[in-house]
Amino acid sequence: MNTNSVEFFNTKDDEKFPDTSAIIIAAWHLSNSENIGKIIRLAHNLGATEALFVRESENHRESKIKKTAGFSYDQMNWRFISENDFIELLGSGFQLTIVETCDGATNIYRENLPQKTILLAGSESHGLPENIIKMANKSVYIPMPGGCKSLNISNALSVAAFEWYRQQIRV
C-alpha cells in the first residue's frame, strides 16, 4: 500500500483550480505563533497566492512559526503587513471574504464564494474590527451544530479555504 502523499497527489491532475481563480489567505492580529505556522502551511497546501498576517508589530516566535509551517516556511509566499497596507490591497482585483460571526454573515455552504478572494479571519480573541467587516464583499460563518461554538482560527480558515476550493473545481 502506497502511503507517500507526494507520490499520491502527483497522480491527481484533475484537482487544480482554474487559472481564473486565486485566493489569498489572511489573518488579523494573531498572537499565537503556531497558528501563523499552520496558516502558512494551509496556504501552501491550497496553492494560495500568498498568506498575509495583518499586525502592526512582528513580535512573534519565529522558531515556533518555522517548526509548525515545516518546509512551507521557505516555500510559501507569506508576510506580515500593516493595517493600512492591507486596506490598500483591497483594490487589487480580489474580493474580501471574511469568516466572522457578525450581523449579516451567511452560512458558508450556502454562499457562492468569489473566484478571486482574500479570505480573512480575525484574531483568536477579538475577531475583526467593525471597519474591516464593513469593507467585506462577503461575510460568512461556519455552521457548528455541536456544543462548542468556536473554531481555532487555523481550523476555521482551513474549512473556509477548502470550501472555496471545492467550489472552484466543481463541474
Rank of each mutant, 00 (worst) to 15 (best):
M1G: 12
N4A: 06
F9H: 09
N10S: 15
D13F: 07
D14S: 03
P18G: 11
D19G: 10
D19N: 10
I24M: 08
I36C: 07
K38A: 13
I40M: 01
L42D: 05
H44K: 13
H44F: 13
N45T: 06
N45V: 02
L46Q: 02
L46Y: 03
G47E: 10
R55E: 05
R55W: 09
N59E: 13
N59L: 13
R61K: 14
E62G: 01
K66N: 02
K67C: 01
G70W: 04
F71N: 08
S72M: 09
Q75C: 10
M76T: 04
F80A: 03
I81E: 11
S82P: 07
N84A: 11
I87C: 07
L90P: 01
Q95M: 02
T97S: 03
I98R: 04
I98L: 09
C102V: 15
D103A: 14
D103E: 14
T106F: 06
N107S: 08
Y109P: 00
R110D: 08
N112W: 07
T117V: 03
L120S: 02
E124C: 05
P129M: 10
N131R: 12
I132K: 05
K134A: 15
K134E: 15
K138F: 13
S139E: 09
I142S: 00
P143K: 06
M144E: 08
G147I: 12
L151Y: 13
N152R: 11
S154N: 05
S154M: 03
L157G: 01
W164L: 06
R166T: 12
Q167D: 00
Q168G: 05
R170Y: 04
V171E: 05
